[in-house]
Design a protein around this nucleic acid. Structure first.
Lengths: 248, 248
DNA sequence: AAAGTTCTTCCACTGAACGGAAGGGGTGGG
DNA sequence: CCCACCCCTTCCGTTCAGTGGAAGAACTTT
């Protein structure tokens, strides 16, 4: 358990999340489960280094140095940069909300997002996580994930909306089709009024990310969207293969 | 001196930079100035938490969790998001490389950048730092910086190109004009063949960032560029004032 | 003015961090 | 094949940095 100094410092950083972007010392101590005096010292060190910054209000926020470090992460520097122009093109031609996501453990992690102005209800945010079985990008990533991951996810299909697929057998069948046809779809399985299509992005033979799109309705334009997605995905793959940079 | 556990762990993270995005354990130990065994333990903890990830090669890279934390930083979540649409507009109408930067200590920190396809030699990258006296955004930020910062910067005007302003008196005069006229310019002071214009971005009365543009030549279109920049800057200010979110 | 807050400082005790040393594992070259 | 080299991992007795209760400062609220 978290008894080492380092893990405690990290727990303090971990106290921040999307809903808690600025926290007082006392909050930090509480959320990290540390005595106030201990938190005070650790926070002081983090602040001195630049991992935390202080707002005019006296509350702490994540510092610029962490932000800069984050820019060096492989998701950011490799995948994201390779994908960026293609995402813009995609958005330009379809005007739908466009997503790039990777698998992180048993969840989908959104790496990039271009949102349309008049958009369908979209839950994701860059940096946020969603369950794999209820999203288009999630199904793609799950279809190509290692067996063990698939089993663990299948064992725990939580319901999100009335349309969420919660029967393992049905999802397995869908995943088979994803592999066969090269794309995945969802229909209001994550949020009502939102459908999605997604395709895999490869680096060599390995599926490293998924590229997806959220629209109010799929029926009419599915083939067109799938091919637009596939064009973009191929473009990204080619860029990735070109840059011999590390990225994962 | 770096003697506390926390600072050592942070030094390990600090070993990464733009040129060193993936490092072996031994490299990390060397760069952080730590005994191998110590580095090994700390790296293990950072890895377990998700601050570091491991490439297939065995080298370490910045992990996704740090990347996610970085997205929570005020630069990112407040300023950057508020500015994003305006930067796109600016880029759309001028097709020049567009920059958003803040002051970090005695340097300029680039927060966002939209690069043109056929672009002039531009040195900056998102997350990188440049000297204040040789860049357009830097001069803006310096013009509105606290007296003490200005003095320290003026005392150390390093030459970058033949055109870099290195005389304190001359720079001071330029800064006065920046405040009077509301924009700053440079002419090949950072890299040959590149000129720039920049304007301040305010939140309330406080100058919190600078918005700049890099072009091959200024003479002809200066007024047009300045007004485009100012429109965008005002838009950003209004957005910032609107969101009562913290940001700095 | 009293009773809350939250933040900061202090310091004696103690157990977590330290790091030298030894042991695996891979690679290369003689 | 064996030895030299490099990088990584584990071990363990010593010691020094981290700990956290407590006291008090600085503010706010009642």
């Amino acid at each position: 358990m978290g008894a080492t100094v380092t893990s405690r410092a990290l727990d303090i950083l971990g106290a921040f999340d999307g809903e808690h972007r600025s926290l007082s010392l006392t909050d930090l101590a509480r959320r990290a489960g540390l005595p106030l005096a201990t938190a005070h010292r650790l926070v002081g060190e983090l602040h001195r280094w630049g991992a935390l910054a202080r707002e005019p209000t006296g509350e702490y926020v994540i510092g610029r140095r962490i932000w800069q470090l984050g820019l060096l992460a492989p998701v950011q520097s490799g995948l994201r940069q390779a994908a960026s122009p293609f995402l813009h093109d995609l958005y330009g031609t379809t005007l739908a909300t466009v997503h790039l996501a990777v698998r992180d453990g048993l969840e989908v992690l959104y790496v990039e997002r271009l949102a349309g102005h008049v958009s369908v209800p979209v839950v994701s945010r860059v940096g946020s996580r969603l369950p794999m079985h209820a999203t288009g990008v999630g199904k793609v990533l799950l279809a190509y994930a290692p067996e063990e991951v698939r089993l663990e996810v299948l064992a725990n299909l939580t319901r999100v909306t009335a349309y969420t697929v919660t029967q393992p057998a049905r999802l397995l069948e869908q995943l088979r089709r994803v592999r066969a046809e090269g794309y995945a779809t969802t229909g209001e399985e994550m949020s009502l009024g939102a459908c999605s299509v997604a395709v895999p992005v490869r680096n060599g033979d390995v599926v490293v990310a998924a590229l997806g799109m959220v629209v109010p309705d799929l029926r009419r334009q599915l083939p067109r969207l799938v091919s637009a997605l596939q064009v973009a995905a191929h473009g990204i793959s080619r860029t990735l293969a070109g840059t011999s940079v590390q990225w994962k």
